Simulated scan of single mutants.
Amino acid sequence: MKETGPTAMGRRNMLLGAGALGSGLLLSACTSNSNGEADKANVKAASSTSGSTPGKHVTVGFSAPAADHGWIAAITKNAKAQAGQYTDVSFQAAEGTNDVNAQISAVQTLISKKVDVLVILPFDGKALTSIGAQAMDAGIPVVNLDRVFDNSLAYRTWIGGDNYGMGVNAGQYVVRTLKAKGISKPVIAEIAGIDNLDLTKQRSQGFKDALAKAGFSVSIRQAAQFTADSGQQVMSNVLQARSKLDAVWNHDDDQGIGVEAAIKQAGRSEFFMVGGAGSRHAMQEIKADSGVLKATVVYPSSMSASAITLARLIGQSKGMGDLVEQEVPSSITLFSATVTKDNVDQYLPTSFT
């Protein structure tokens, strides 16, 4: 499950797309090709810029939740792969866990090993704030990945996704498509994620605001659990409740596997759907253009690779190659691009399985 900081923080952050993060932080990827090559992580080989020139050796400690979701699994894989691109970086990863106390203990172990920099994606940002502060107090800079700590004193730099922006971009795509179809009074469904999470609230608010600007609104909204099973059940309920839909936004592409299964089972195709997060399955469906899924808004799993690059730069007291400032920024919000059939080939390499 994905979670980032409060919307207010997002508005203050430096809003950057992956392609604008500077020559020391450019992202690309290699994935399976038509010849069946095994998947590789979303990484970028070190370039010849000053920020990528080998320097002081940096040991980066890494902690994230258990890989029980495609996006989280990609986070850990991408971090490890990116560290492997640098000859001056050692990578020490704690075992992933969804137990707050276990993650705190794992990070304490990394602190005791005196790693140079820590990259932490907390299972619960609030609960892990104290351990981030403990690392900072010990002189170990912390790169807080996505789920934000409660106190900015607990981290040196935050990098993560834009949940509100996901909703906005999904809404804007829905509006554009409906207007192109000449539909003035649409029936719009929203299949949200876990409703008590801030990320879900932010995504829904962004979607609502984008629709409202065009005079549209959500007609039916139900929350799932970021799983395929819950997506199938919730979408089945929505389809039974509404005999006609014009558009659907599903917050999460893993959840979307079940949503699509319910749609196929019901034999419905009168509407179009937008996904969320940017899974490979979703992008392949978009490319094939054989079903209702026509777009997805990405929540880049490549952010962990960027976090490793940032940790290295911080550990070496370097700045980002294309920026004038001598230090890494204190916060970076990644852009949620809208992927359609027209640009899917550009984004497939950074999709997650």
Rank of each mutant, 00 (worst) to 15 (best):
T333D: 01
Y155G: 07
P300K: 03
D198G: 15
I111P: 08
V175F: 00
T76M: 01
K181D: 05
L21D: 02
G206I: 08
Y347G: 02
V43D: 04
Q255A: 12
V143C: 11
D39R: 11
G193I: 05
D146K: 03
Q265Y: 05
I120D: 06
D322V: 11
N196D: 13
G182V: 02
S52N: 15
A241I: 04
S351I: 07
V218A: 06
A127H: 05
G161F: 03
T49C: 14
A138C: 08
G256A: 13
I120R: 07
V328T: 10
M166T: 11
A307N: 05
A189E: 05
G165N: 13
A41G: 04
V324W: 05
A45I: 12
V175C: 06
K185Q: 14
Q108G: 03
V142Q: 05
D253H: 10
S243V: 11
F352G: 09
D146I: 01
N78K: 11
N163L: 06
Y86N: 12
T53Q: 13
S304E: 10
V175R: 01
Q284R: 14
K244M: 03
G5V: 03
W158Y: 14
R312N: 10
G215C: 06
I332H: 02
S90C: 08
I188F: 04
N237V: 03
A307Y: 07
I286D: 11
A180T: 14
I257P: 03
L145H: 10
T31Y: 08
V60C: 13
K201F: 03
L348R: 06
V107A: 10
I72W: 01
F207D: 04
A266G: 12
T129G: 06
M303G: 02
M14K: 15
D322G: 14
T296D: 15
A135W: 00
S317G: 14
G182T: 15
I72E: 00
E260K: 14
F62W: 06
S50C: 13
A210H: 07
M320C: 11
L128S: 08
H281P: 03
R221V: 08
K126Y: 02
M235K: 15
L323V: 13
N343L: 02
G206A: 05
T87L: 06
S304P: 01
L323R: 15
